[in-house]
Structure formats: structure tokens, C-alpha cells
Design a binder for these strands. Structure first.
Lengths: 210, 210
DNA sequence: CCCGCCATCAACCGGATGGCTGATGGCGGG
DNA sequence: CCCGCCATCAGCCATCCGGTTGATGGCGGG
């Protein structure tokens, strides 16, 4: 198998160096270049056409997410492997949607990293177990009932026995709006009245955490 | 201090023997007699006029509770110390109300038992720590809100979003009755509407245990 | 024997609730 | 640019809800 060419993207020189060292001392990999932010990464990727881009998401001056978006927009063939320190579920899904081929945590063992890069180069998706499980569960439940902020507030007041009128007063909105919010809450929770909505709220942990 | 005379009441000979042994080998106590049930206990107490009666609550042929009631009714001066194996809160309060001077668990250490008997003989109330704490909490909340069986059922259905009419159908009662139950539920839980009642139900553990 | 609690039912009434239709503005994503 | 989601508001209306008053019967306790 031909060598796999890499582009390393991370704002920390130490991390870049560490990665470079790892991949250069291992057979089958070539590090073409390094970038410190998303913008550089896109430029270098366009120039050098690497097989795989190892990218950190959190970077000053050109976020990794935008870079991924831009890369896919430009139709660059490089596979992007997101390599991040912590697993903030706010980032994983957007990254995958933006076109990342894989999502690894930095605490992954070396072997796993190498393997992930080979998999990514071959176009296969590689996910950290933790990320993977959360992903499937996120997919499995498309949007069961994440209430909007306002809707949650209304539901909380309902649970306290507040009438629509008083909820309106308390939130500085009209009673009509309260009713609208409540209707949405009912729909989203799959219930028919406020009492059942409160019950669902407790069952699903939306309510109950004082 | 004069000796304290005792009457032992327990359906288990083994337990009676154990108690007798304990008290006879300790200074300051005299075991006047033993009884195997409540009826015997009352008779013997009337005859022998003991200072303290150590009584088990659960006994075949003349429950301990009835015995205590009868003793107080007859104005017998003996102090009753309830000595039971397990702490079932269904028994403690009635026993105290019936006139028991103290309530101890059988797993209490000997010293504590001796001390409790002396306290009881002096007319002071002695309670196991566990019993005591539950007692005060029971007193502190005069009517926490133990819903009646029917009321709980209605509340559960309310939590499912069932309308009064449908609750009536489901429970084979009239809608008027459902409303009555609900009114009582509201009063007992200190809320104003069904939604808040459901919330309280969850907060207080009345609801939520599937 | 009377009282309190549970459980049942009735009828009345005013206000609250929920469904429906429809509308506006902002915001983010394709 | 259009669409969807959030958040806001309006009006109408049938129904439901909750309060009140009043009543009955059973059961257990003082």
C-alpha cells in the first residue's frame, strides 16, 4: 500500500510535533505539512492534496469547523479526522455533518490512531467508542422532545400550578403566547393536557432538578 | 433505689428466658412473672402490679396493642416498654398512643435496655433513636398528605392526562366523585390545580414509582 | 352515640383550558 | 432566497375544570 500523506492541524506546536514524531517514526505515513489554524489548513490542503487531515477543532483564528466546511465545499478529496482533547457533544455532531470522516479523542492509544488514519484514508468512518455510542443514540432519538427554552420555562410554571394568565404576567408575554408555547409543549411531549405534560416532564428529567 | 419489678411478655419462650436471665443477673431488677400473650399479660399485671412491663407487640392470642389499651383502661400503674424486633412504623405510633411509655428495638445493647427500664420505671419516655426520629418527623408534619387509596388512583390517572370524565369511566364511579376526590387531593397537597398536584406527587414520591 | 374520614353522588357556575386559524419578525441552514 | 424553528400575538369557541353546597353510607375511634 502506498504511503499515506498527512496534514497536521493544531494550534499547539507541541501537539503538532508530537504527532509528526509519531507518524514519521512509523512506516507508511508521510507528514506533508503542519497548520496552526483552519485558514492555513485549507490553503495547505488545496496546495498539497494530502490523503488525511488530522485536525483539532478548537483553534484561535479560523475554527476547525469552518475549515472542514470549507474543505468539503471546495470538494477537496482529503479525509478529515477530527482529533480533539475533550468530548464536548456540542462539537461532534456539527463536525460530522460538516464532513469529517472520523472523530477521535486525543487520549486514544497510538495503535488506534494509526489504524484510524488508515481507515480514514480508505474512506471509512472511524469514531471513538464514546463518540460513536452518543452518535447512535442521538440518531436513534431524532428529536423526541427537547423543549425550547421558553417552552421549558412555561412548563415549569405550570408545574407550580400557575395559571396561563399568571404565567403571562410572570414572563412578560401575552396569555396568547403562553397558550401557544403550551400547545407546542403538548405536541412535543405527546400529551394532551398540562397535568400529563408535567408528568412527562418529570419522567424525562425536564422537571424535577431544583 | 428499690428494686424494679418486671413482667415479661413475649410469645417466644426463648426470648422470655433470655430477658429473665439478663435481668436476674443484673442488680436492681426482679422478674415477677412471664406471659405469652396479651391476655395473660393483663391478668398478671393486675395481680402482681409490676413496675415495668416488657412487651412484644406481635403475639398470637391477644395482641400486644390490645393489652396496652386494656392496661391503661384499667388504670394499672405499670409502665409498658414495647420491645419489638422490627421497626414497622405501622405499630409504633399506635403503641405510643395506646399508652406505651417507651419503644425499643430488640437489637438494642444490654446497657441501653437496662437504662430504658429504669427510665420507664421513673415514668420517663424512652425511645430507640430510630423510632424517636421518625416520631418527631411524624409530629412535625401533622398531615404530610397521605392520600387515600382512591385519591392516589385518581391522581395517577390525572398524571396520564386522563380527563375527569374518563377517570370516572375507568374507575366505575361518577364524574362528581372524581371531582370530589380531586378536590381533596388538592387540599391535601396544598395546590390549586391538577398540574401542580402531579408535580407535588412526583416531588413527594407519590408518583413516579413505576 | 357522635364525630371524622373515606367514598360515593348531584347540580350549578364562572373562569380557565385547549384547539384552530392566522399573522409577524428574527435567525440559522441549505 | 426560502424554509423551518423560535417567539411573539389575536380571536373564537366548545369544553373542561375547580369551587361550593349538600347529601348518603360505611367504618373506626373516643
Amino acid at each position: 500500500m502506498a504511503e499515506i500523506s498527512l496534514l497536521l492541524v493544531d494550534d499547539h506546536p507541541v501537539v503538532r510535533n508530537g504527532l509528526r514524531g509519531m507518524f514519521e517514526s512509523a512506516p507508511g505515513f508521510t507528514v506533508l505539512a503542519e497548520a496552526a489554524n483552519g485558514v492555513e489548513a485549507v490553503d495547505l490542503a488545496a496546495d498539497l492534496d494530502p490523503d488525511v487531515i488530522l485536525m483539532d477543532l478548537r483553534m484561535p483564528g479560523g475554527g476547525g469547523l469552518d475549515a472542514i466546511t470549507e474543505l468539503t465545499r471546495r470538494g477537496i478529496r482529503a479525509k478529515v479526522l477530527v482529533l480533539t482533547t475533550w468530548d464536548t457533544d456540542t462539537d461532534t455532531l456539527p463536525a460530522i455533518e460538516a464532513g469529517a470522516t472520523g472523530y477521535l479523542l486525543k487520549d486514544a492509544p497510538q495503535d488506534e490512531l494509526f489504524n484510524a488514519v488508515r481507515q480514514a484514508a480508505a474512506g471509512r468512518t472511524v469514531l471513538s467508542p464514546a463518540v460513536a455510542s452518543r452518535l447512535v443514540s442521538a440518531v436513534r432519538s431524532p428529536a423526541p422532545s427537547p423543549l425550547a427554552a421558553r417552552e421549558r420555562q412555561v412548563l415549569e410554571l405550570v408545574a407550580k400550578g400557575t395559571s396561563n394568565r399568571d404565567i403571562a404576567r410572570e414572563l412578560f408575554i401575552s396569555e396568547a403566547t403562553v397558550k401557544t408555547h403550551l400547545s407546542h409543549v403538548f405536541t412535543k411531549l405527546g400529551v394532551a393536557d398540562r397535568a400529563a405534560a408535567v408528568a412527562k416532564g418529570y419522567e424525562q428529567g425536564i422537571l424535577g432538578r431544583d
